[in-house]
Design a binder for these strands. Structure first.
Length: 334
RNA sequence: GGCGCCAUAGCCAAGUGGUAAGGCAUGGGUCUGCAACACCCUGAGCCCCAGUUCAAAUCUGGGUGGCGCCU
């Protein structure tokens, strides 16, 4: 059951629409349309579109596509910088912008496919600041290299069994991060988790976009990837390589697969296929993530002949949901 | 037409007498701290037939299919 911001008790709560779903389903396009018809502004929830200069491979909206709509949290991190961006930074920034959007009485529309960012933001998770330290990280990494995954996992199990139990012992990356967090802050991640739940801040309406037909989704993904190559993905990656983009930026789909091609280790057709496969796998992981959220109202994009019909269906769904709040609460307000 | 080589899961592939490695893909999943990340789980009885043998994907013969070379 959703609370409502018309309730005087919850004055601070912010109505927000979240457009979620796997990649290549038209989330961006839908969000922009809704921003226009619902007098809103879009806030991106995408861990890669935050980077400047990663354009071809990331399917960011172009000026034309935006058609004047405001689209936040895109293109603001320099991919050349190694300063670590994470959920914590994202949540801080997104919250700031959303509050601003609310102040000017426009409707915030969150749009993106990074489930971790979306959930952390909308559940108003509280993160610690300054929780990483490159030196400590390096030392822990050395430990991993010398003693192995099992050893560091055992170490984590000793100091923070709760966090350790959340992932498999082979997941060295998560193990290292948890150890680093402890070494830097003196807190266990599980402590932080316990402290992180704050009062409710958002009233989200979740709209999910997906394909009913897997084949159609694959077709869409493939043609998007083909288009990226036509639009100069290889050139963009070459530049990324020359300018030494950060490891995280280079781990983006479309970038990591093209690097071996530029180095002459893979053929072009092979590379294109690889990017398509990665994208499909990504879409699948996204779906796995979003499936857990039972509040999402799913729309099959392949149920619609034309985009306008989808937009108007989503629109009426959103309006209906907003009204539910009013009706439910109004009597208690008076 | 002749000679040679090959045939193992959707693909690549190891195994050459003792009961089918591995990788990729696929499907399912985990995840509030690098998340377009990282990680977990997931399959065949070996082209067909006949034979040798206690035992055959492995040896023999035949067939079928593919590749190469020769006339």
């Amino acid at each position: 059951m959703r609370y409502c911001n018309y309730d005087v008790e919850n004055e601070g709560e912010i109505d927000i629409l979240a457009v979620v779903g796997p990649t290549a389903t038209g989330k961006t396009k839908l969000a922009i349309s809704l921003a226009k018809s619902l007098e809103g502004e879009v806030v991106s929830a995408d861990s890669i579109q935050i980077y400047k200069d990663l354009n071809v491979g990331t399917a960011k909206p172009t000026e034309e596509e935006l058609g004047g709509a405001n689209y936040h949290l895109v293109n603001f991190v320099d991919p050349r910088s190694n300063s670590s961006f994470s959920v914590a930074s994202y949540v801080t920034l997104a919250k700031e912008i959303i509050v601003k959007i609310k102040k000017i009485e426009r409707y915030p529309i969150l749009c993106g496919g990074t489930g971790l960012y979306i959930d952390s933001l909308l559940n108003n998770i509280n993160f610690f600041e300054n929780t990483s330290d490159l030196n400590i990280r390096r030392k822990l990494k050395a430990f991993l290299d010398i003693r192995g995954k099992d050893y560091i996992y055992a170490a984590l199990t000793k100091i923070d069994p709760e966090t350790a139990s959340k992932f498999h012992k082979n997941n060295a990356k998560r193990t290292l991060r948890a150890l680093e967090f402890f070494a830097v802050t003196g807190y266990r991640i599980s402590d932080q988790n316990a402290l992180s739940r704050r009062e409710k801040l958002f009233n989200p309406i979740y709209v999910g976009l997906k394909y009913k037909s897997k084949e159609d989704h694959i077709k869409k993904i493939n043609s998007r990837v083909d288009k990226m190559f036509k639009n100069g993905l290889v050139e963009e990656v070459r530049r990324a390589l020359d300018e030494n983009y950060s490891k995280i930026a280079m781990s983006a789909i479309g970038y990591k697969e093209v690097v071996p091609y530029i180095k002459g280790e893979k053929s072009l057709p092979e590379t294109i296929e690889r990017v398509k496969i990665s994208t499909r796998q990504y879409a699948k992981r996204q779906m796995t993530w979003f499936k857990r959220n039972k509040e999402i109202k799913w729309f099959n994009v392949d149920d619609y002949q034309n985009f306008e019909d989808l937009v108007s269906d989503v629109e009426s769904y959103v309006k209906k949901e907003k009204n539910k709040c009013k009706i439910k609460v109004e009597p208690t307000v008076s």
